[in-house]
Every structure is written in C-alpha cells, then in structure tokens.
C-alpha cells in the first residue's frame, strides 16, 4: 500500500509536470485574457496533434458564432479523464478560453464546466485551465464576472 501510494505520487507528479506541449508555438493566444461563455457543442475533435472543441455562442443580436478552441492531445487528456465522448454535439457548457490575439473567433481552451456541474480541463499551453484557475474562476463566476480583465480590474 505504502509503495503503491508512493509510486502514485511519482506518476501524478510526472504526469502534471509535463510542460505545455505542442507541435506549435502558443504565441497566437492572448494568455493574459480569459473569457467565459455559455456555449453549445458543435464538434469535439479528439485528434492529434491537438484536440479542438468547436462550440456555438449566441451573440447579442441572436446570431451564432462558431468558436474554435484548441486543447491538448489525447494522450495528455486521457489521464485527466477526458475522452472522445466527453463533449457531444448539442451539449451546453460553460467554457473558459484565451482568445486569439488577432480577434478571430478562436482561442486556447482553459476549462469547461459540464452540464452535471463538473469542471474538466482540456487545456494545453494556450490557456491556463489548472485547478487553481478553476478555483479562482468559481469565485469570480459567483460574483458575476465573465472575463479575467473585469475581475482583476475590480481588484479580485
């Protein structure tokens, strides 16, 4: 028991100490800006070299925008309990992402809150979706913030 717990601690440490991995740079993402939106899943592409979550968001005028959010590779996500069926077309989610710097409708995904209330993090290096980020955002959401800039401007 002691040995297996010790080994588990090594595995956990090793798994999560993997740096932000990708086959490309993350320079296209504004990682200092985090945005939360309610979204409907259009497609979850659990693909190499990166997963992509395509979601629809509703604009103020009622039109829809397809938002393309990049996540980590399947081998990084499976240890986090995420598989190819974690998100299904039509699912309603809360997603947190860091937008593309050039303003096009895309970004790096941080985390997603599922319909059952669970948070999952498909994040790669494009946006911070770790436990600390989720905890921080749980507080910010309670206070009605939907962007990190609003929350930090308010001194939160």
């Amino acid at each position: 028991m002691k040995t297996s717990i010790k080994r588990l601690s090594w595995v956990l440490a090793a798994t999560l100490s993997i740096p932000a991995l990708a086959h490309h740079s993350f320079a296209m993402f504004d990682r200092d800006t985090e945005i939360v939106k309610t979204a409907t899943v259009q497609r979850w592409a659990f693909n190499n070299p990166h997963s992509w979550l395509y979601v629809n968001i509703t604009n103020e005028d009622g039109s829809k925008t397809l938002l393309s959010l990049e996540g980590a590779s399947p081998t990084q996500l499976i240890p986090r309990g995420i598989t190819g069926s974690t998100f299904e077309p039509g699912d309603t989610l809360l997603v947190m992402y860091c937008p593309l710097r050039d303003g096009r409708p895309g970004g790096g995904i941080g985390w997603a809150k599922l319909a059952d209330g669970r948070f999952v993090s498909p994040a790669d290096g494009g946006c911070n979706g770790n436990d600390a980020s989720i905890s921080r955002w749980q507080e910010w959401l309670k206070q009605g913030y939907t962007t990190s800039k609003e929350a930090t401007a308010a001194g939160k």
Binding site: L8, S9, W10, V11, L12, A13, A14, T15, L16, S17, I18, P19, A20, L21, G125, N130, D131, A132
Partner: peptide, 25 residues
C-alpha cells in the same frame, strides 16, 4: 507530498525546463 507537487507543477507549466514528465523516480 503528491498534492503539494500537483499544486506546484500545475501552477507553473514550465517549472521543469525541458522536463517533459520529469520528476518520476
């Protein structure tokens, strides 16, 4: 220790430069 490591490493993706899974053993 595990929780401490989790907190530490997940808060800084680049904490182990070039480590790529370092810290095992």
């Amino acid at each position: 220790l595990s929780l401490l490591l989790l907190t530490a490493v997940s808060s800084s993706a680049f904490a182990q430069g070039g480590g790529f899974g370092g810290g095992y053993g």
